[in-house]
Computed example of a mutant assay.
Amino acid sequence: MTGSAPRPFSRRLRAVLSWLHLWVGLSVGVVFALVAITGTVLVFHTDLLRLQHPQLAQHAAVADGRVLAGLVERWRPEGLRSLDLPHDDLPVWQGYFEDGHRAYFAPEDGALLLYRSHEDDVLMWLHDWHTHLLGGETGEEVLGVFGWIALGLIVTGLYLWWPRRGQWLAHLKMHSGPPVRRWLSWHRSSGALLFPLLLLATLTGVGMVYSKGFQAVLVGAFGGDTVKPPKLAGEGTVDWPQVLRQADGALPRARLSRVSVPKSDDGVVSLRARADGEWHPVGRSTIAIAKAGSGVLQVNDATANKLGMRMSQAIFPLHVGAVGGSVMKWATAVVGLLPMFLLVTGFLFWRRRRGRR
């Protein structure tokens, strides 16, 4: 009945959840806030990279197979495992190496323009913290646990804020004083107003840590198949100009985005492409070409996948704000600041309330 006093069990549950929300938030919330705030910076990773190194943007975005051949020959012994093709946002070859560092090469002649690693580049360091807590696979596992705890904080926060009928506007109001009321109202109202975006960012972050499990659940519930690349033995060098030409024509209305460097005894070259309608910045469509350039072996258009697989492949672009243009990009950046705001206002509320006792 509306307006009746809460039952004893409800009061006890609320007291327990309020205590847990406060102390877990003031402890684990510190890590959650620091991870989230680095996410705000990383939303603009490419923009900041171009700002830091303007020489990267001073090229025409041309993917020449002959330059690619030279890059693979020169850098594969150094651990080169894949390359992003030049495109409008970053018109250079971006190489990914087995030890985690990246290198950038001129599209005209393959000259080395920039070398980056988490040890000497701020953005790479922030990326390593955001995805692995600077601790490799162990750090990623710990991050996953923190992610589940953060989801618990978000859900309990919503429960503790949830107003009775007719009191919605009153519960969303941010008060200027007294201090205890101010910090509590700012904490609750900001969390409630941005709850959907905060939940989305946190849930997709957890989904990236446990990507295989999330994909299995989504595919099992909504359908989809995992496409495995074909296996083919093959020695010798790759005819890279021919491979790029064949891959470019294999999937109409798609942009080739990334090429994997095959091992010496692997007869297949795997490429990624972004088809029209895909959210992922690199694309999840795949093309497999015979190493010698003799033909297309497999084409997978990600936009034709069943719902479960498409939902799984949407986790990353939703997390990084790659969906919805600049509005969603900025909204994702703002939400990354919210956990720090909630941590500070929660701490100030606790300190003020303690001071009044």
Rank of each mutant, 00 (worst) to 15 (best):
M1W: 15
S4M: 14
P6A: 15
R7P: 14
L17M: 12
W19V: 09
G25I: 00
S27E: 06
S27K: 12
A36V: 04
A36P: 01
T46D: 02
L48A: 11
L56C: 04
D64K: 05
L80G: 10
R81D: 15
S82W: 13
L83K: 03
D89P: 12
D99P: 00
H101L: 03
R102L: 08
A103F: 02
G110T: 01
L112R: 08
D120T: 13
D121G: 07
W129Q: 07
T131G: 06
G136N: 14
G136L: 12
E140Y: 03
L143K: 00
L143I: 00
L143H: 00
G144F: 01
G144W: 01
I149D: 02
G157H: 02
G157Y: 02
R165D: 02
H171V: 09
L172Q: 04
M174Y: 04
M174A: 09
G177R: 11
P179V: 02
R181A: 07
R181E: 02
R182S: 10
W183S: 03
S185W: 03
S189G: 13
S190L: 14
Y210S: 08
S211R: 05
F214L: 06
G220S: 10
F222Q: 04
T226V: 11
K231D: 04
G234W: 01
E235F: 10
P241L: 06
P241Y: 11
D248R: 08
P252F: 11
V261M: 06
S264P: 02
D266K: 03
R272W: 07
P281Q: 09
G295S: 06
V296S: 04
L297K: 02
D301S: 11
A302C: 12
A302W: 04
L307D: 08
G308Y: 09
M309E: 13
M309R: 09
M311A: 14
Q313Y: 15
V320I: 14
G321N: 04
A322D: 10
G325S: 08
V334R: 07
L337Q: 04
M340T: 12
M340Q: 05
G346S: 05
W350P: 08
R353E: 00
